[in-house]
């Protein structure tokens, strides 16, 4: 491949849009279903994952020449788990309500495929600075999809945006009602599927490049 040497800017933006972890690699779907009923939780989850992915990529990339390849998964998981515990404690200290709502899903960032995937696929083979940018980019890409899904689900399912009601009472009087499906997990599946469809049909989507190669 000719793109072996990516610029730092490309490394960062690739994860956000072109090779978006949720919409392109279809990773991290489980938490994308679970925390996207409200935008508030989706935003916090996106930030938490961005911090974890960025920091774990940075640390693993710095350690990459010291880690024996036979036990690299264990070492990577140790790094990631430590970071997740820190994030969890911070959330419990400063955002207790949201932390309660996210419940087990903060802890489950440890098993999120995106974090380990980026560590394995990128951080082990690249310098610390590109690794940090790659991790942040992928985390933001995940957060972007999460917020987009949560926006649709919260708007249609509860008539709210970030907790504020936006559906006027006159609509409700005229017979409008909320879409119950959006509050259920299948609603998130449909929205994610439609987002992937939208992304792939936009110009510059990576799928067309792949078939052209």
């Amino acid at each position: 491949m000719s793109e072996m040497k990516l610029t730092l800017k490309e490394t960062f933006f690739r994860g956000i849009w072109k090779e978006n972890p949720v919409a392109y690699q279809v990773l991290g779907i489980c938490s994308a279903l679970a925390v996207t009923v409200q935008m508030k939780t989706a935003i916090v989850m996106g930030i938490a994952l961005t911090v974890v992915t960025g920091m774990s990529n940075l640390i693993i990339s710095m350690l990459r020449k010291k880690i024996p390849s036979t036990i690299r998964i264990i070492v990577e998981l140790t790094v990631i788990a430590s970071l997740v515990i820190v994030i969890d404690q911070v959330l419990q200290a400063f955002l207790y309500d949201i932390s309660k709502q996210l419940s087990v899903f903060v802890g489950l960032i440890i098993t999120n495929c995106i974090v380990l995937g980026r560590a394995e696929a990128f951080a082990l083979a690249n310098d610390p600075l590109p690794s940090l940018l790659d991790g942040l980019g992928n985390g933001l890409g995940y957060g972007l999809i999460l917020v987009a899904v949560a926006f649709v689900r919260e708007l249609l399912g509860a008539g709210k945006i970030v907790g504020f009601s936006v559906i006027p009472q006159s609509w409700m009087d005229a017979g409008y009602s909320h879409m119950g499906l959006m509050v259920l997990a299948p609603g998130a599946f449909f929205i994610i599927g439609l987002l992937v469809w939208l992304k792939n049909s936009l110009p510059g989507a990576s799928r067309e490049e792949k078939t052209a190669q």
Binding site: S177, M179, G180, L181, M182, L184, P186
Partner: peptide, 10 residues
Amino acid sequence: AFVFFSYPVS
């Protein structure tokens, strides 16, 4: 099924 799960009231 969509209407059934989305608008159970109706």
